[in-house]
Design a protein around this nucleic acid. Structure first.
Length: 434
DNA sequence: TTTTGAGTTGTTCGA
DNA sequence: GTCGAACAACTCAAA
């Protein structure tokens, strides 16, 4: 009987898994594998909470496989070397996986595709991370959308039950390669991590009432009005199909947020320059400021603007920040401090448990005004009126900035009116140059 | 080809 | 306090 490898990456579940389904319904016995990628892990600090999150999920995933008489092989190293050697070791005839659309992953996978094909081993990807891939929702002229609303309309027109249907992997678990051999998992210590959990990990399910009331409560950071499922979508511990189905039946605003996720994945694939520079190239002419003291004040939550500071402290303490506040701190960083959006984007990348490259870059470019379908640059959030609107009782602020209202609290590091006029002039100058 | 309507989340100013 | 206009025009998408 032939051996087929299924390679887990950002899809750490066995139910409703498109690539796993493809493998299980092919001829052969399926051996699942996960690789802790040393190329990525070696750049992370020892207390990285995402690695710990993944580690816990891997343990659970391995137990799920063992419950079906199989085993998950877990390795640490460079996948470009480890996948071919595993293929050899198991004498596998095929490798299955779910597609990952980030440039690093794409390069890695096309390298492996070429290498395996030369050895007569097939390498097959499946769509699992999104509902629609880059070319499934296009304008009538065949080109990709760059504006969300028409994209969202076409996305909804294109959607049928078929796209939200769960893949019934559970019917085929008998096609998993059976073994009583329990392989070990590399220790966190061996991979360079301390294994200390310092933040809470959200559950991979949410009360339906949160999704149902999302449109009313999502903007109030002191209210538990968001689902906190983003980290589970990021690592595939929840299926986007099952969540989208639930959202479609429950709350349109929440459903649209999931479509934003597809939108930014699609933008990343079609416009990869937007990962490192402005989507609209004329905004690359902005003459950014840089001030180490102000950058540090922003990062640590000591800007003297309480909503900004509360958000940054929530991020530092929990690896999470409320969506409304993400916009406020990003706007403050790019507009009030006039700092390059890429620096803020990288800080979020380091800190956010739910960090997703495409969405993070998209959101930052939206805030900076340089992205596709971005807020017009003259739309400068006023951090004080945002606080009055969305945290009028200072509930969220008092939680994260206990010294607020006392003499110990920081003075504003920039004056609002002055900063607003400065950024408007600076952007105008940049656009005149372009 | 040309025209038309529209575009995530806002703020400020003056009547 | 409330309301509409200005902010700045531009580009996108579809008819």
């Amino acid at each position: 009987m032939e051996t087929l490898i299924f390679w887990h990456r950002r899809d750490l579940r066995i139910n409703d898994n498109a690539g796993l389904y493809k493998a299980l319904t092919s001829k052969g016995k399926v051996q699942p594998v996960f690789i802790f990628d040393s190329n990525i892990l070696q750049h992370l600090p020892p207390n990285d909470q995402r690695v710990l999150f993944i580690y816990q999920q891997i343990i659970a995933l391995k137990e799920s496989y063992q419950a079906h008489g199989a085993d998950l092989i877990v390795l640490y190293g460079d996948p470009k070397a480890m996948i071919p050697s595993l293929v050899e070791e198991l004498n596998a005839s095929a490798v299955f996986t779910n597609r990952d659309y980030e440039p690093y992953a794409h390069e890695r996978d096309s390298y492996l595709f070429d290498l395996l094909i030369a050895k007569n081993v097939s390498f097959t990807g499946a769509k699992d991370h999104v509902i629609f891939e880059k070319n499934e929702v296009l304008k009538n002229d065949g080109l990709p959308y760059t504006i969300f609303t028409p994209y969202m309309r076409k996305w909804k027109e294109t959607l049928t039950d078929f796209y939200l249907k769960a893949y019934p992997t559970e019917k085929y678990f008998s096609n998993l390669k059976q073994t009583t051999n329990k392989t070990s998992i590399p220790t966190l210590e061996a991979m360079g991590f301390d294994g200390k959990q310092t933040v809470d990990f959200p559950k991979n399910q949410t009360p339906l009432s949160i999704i149902a009331n999302y449109h009313e409560t999502r903007d109030i950071p002191s209210v538990n009005g968001t689902s906190r499922l983003s980290v589970h979508l990021r690592f595939g511990t929840i299926s986007i199909r099952s969540l989208a189905k639930q959202a479609m039946e429950t709350n349109e605003k929440y459903f649209n947020e999931l479509i934003w996720r597809d939108f930014y994945q699609m933008i990343m694939v079609h416009f990869p320059h937007s990962l490192t520079g402005a989507f609209r190239k004329e905004y690359d002419h902005i003459n950014w400021e840089f001030n180490e003291t102000q950058f540090e004040a922003w990062k640590s939550g000591n800007t003297g603007y309480p909503l900004v500071d509360a958000g940054m402290r929530e991020l530092n303490a929990t690896g999470h920040m409320h969506n409304r506040v993400r916009m406020v701190v990003a706007s403050f960083f790019t507009k009030h401090l006039l700092h390059d959006w890429r620096l803020g984007e990288r800080y979020f990348a380091e800190k956010l448990l739910d960090f997703e490259l495409a969405s993070n870059v998209g959101g930052w470019q939206w805030a900076a005004g340089c992205g596709c379908d971005a807020a017009p640059y003259f739309r400068v959030f006023n951090p004080t009126s945002q606080q009055e609107k969305f945290d009028p009782q200072f509930t969220y602020i008092k939680k994260w900035v206990p010294e607020f209202g006392t003499s110990a609290y920081a003075q504003p590091i920039v004056e609002h009116k002055w900063a607003r006029e400065r950024v408007l002039a600076r952007y105008k100058e940049a656009l005149k140059q372009a």
